[in-house]
Design a protein around this nucleic acid. Structure first.
Lengths: 200, 200
DNA sequence: AAAAACCGACCGATTGGTCGGTTTTTATTA
DNA sequence: TAATAAAAACCGACCAATCGGTCGGTTTTT
């Protein structure tokens, strides 16, 4: 292959950086440490990334598109919206066991987004897109019949995301404290149940 | 008063530190900057706090007891548990407008707890106490009649906390993006509604 | 006069980032 | 295919800036 080595080095830096960022956080993570663990010199690092922040943004971008793909794959036609939501809750549950090592990265994204304007702008757009997608899905559920008319799709979408975010955060801070997979399912079940029935 | 000046200095350092921690985060916040903004010398700082981490823990402790008091004040006898929960959701909503400036501190607590063992141990106990209290409250709701029998109080308590945490986090990262007060109410309404009715 | 509170210059360690030079890959010839 | 020059990738010693924390001395309170 042509520029195979260059690509390998770049990937190596990024995957190593994820681990270091997870363990130490963005600020405490040193470029020198990342380079050392990645088996790469500082020169190579700054050849691929203009700055530490650029590396962070690259990792974030990759993560956001990954999540986007997962969500796309989950939503299938001919399946009731309520069932899709339950399936999503189950997926969140599996994330705890699968990617538990990389979970703190999610926290780090939030923290940096709340502080750095550049990071925030890179986060806000996809994040709102998630909300938009959920709201759209709920509207589908209405016409389809699995979601009651009268439900405020916009607000409900935010509620769903808040719950998901809260679950992820608890999984990061309190792993092994509870059976998060079961709880994620129960919580989503409660929300879906409420959206199905007519309230009064 | 006796040691009035000393007390003033200590409070001044703590309140200033909250602002700096919120803006820059724990790692990026410099002791020198905190001292400068607080109008206090470094000598005074280290006279009151053995280290930066000690200061952080002191702030956290104060925050946790504050939350504890709020929760205690909210739970009144002779009021249905479901109503208390709705009242709590409303309180969360007001937090967004009241303490929006200090909200990022909550994020910082989570981040540090997930990384530093000392901070984690100081957080985990009160946090689980919250869950225990909610579970207990839900059990009360059962005997009282406002919560259906059969509801898993332990799991439901975690769901409630996850939702609250997620709401707070969204308020930090995306202020002014949505009417969080309304959404907090709607989400809690959904959860409470599900816990009231018998599902199937 | 003793003790507590406070001051700020100073220190070793570490940080993100730079830069002149070397090695490896690619493109272009003969 | 071999030789070669240009470009890309990589190296690591080095730097200015900043960090948390110290300490001998001064001021204020008891």
């Amino acid at each position: 292959m042509a520029q195979q080595r260059s690509e390998d080095t770049r990937k190596q830096i990024m995957t190593t950086a994820v681990n270091v960022f997870c363990r130490s956080g963005y600020d405490a993570a040193g470029v020198a440490e990342i380079c050392s663990l990645a088996g790469v010199s500082k020169g190579a690092f700054y050849h691929h990334f203009p700055s530490k922040k650029t590396l962070f943004l690259a990792i974030m971008q990759q993560w956001l598109t990954e999540v986007d793909n997962r969500l796309n794959a989950l939503r299938q036609p001919n399946v009731a919206v309520s069932d899709t939501l339950m399936q999503m809750a189950h997926t969140i549950g599996t994330v705890f066991t699968e990617a538990s090592g990389q979970l703190p990265m999610f926290l780090e994204f939030m923290v940096q987004a709340s502080r750095d304007k550049t990071v925030w702008e890179a986060t806000i757009a996809p994040y709102q897109a998630y909300q938009y997608r959920f709201a759209h899905m709920l509207e589908e559920g209405k016409t389809e019949g699995s979601i009651r008319e009268g439900e405020d799709a916009q607000a409900a979408a935010w509620v769903l995301i808040a719950f998901a975010v809260g679950m992820l955060l608890q999984g990061v801070v309190l792993p092994e404290t509870a059976d998060w997979e079961t709880i994620a399912g129960r919580g989503m079940g409660m929300l879906v149940e409420s959206m199905q029935r007519s309230n009064k």
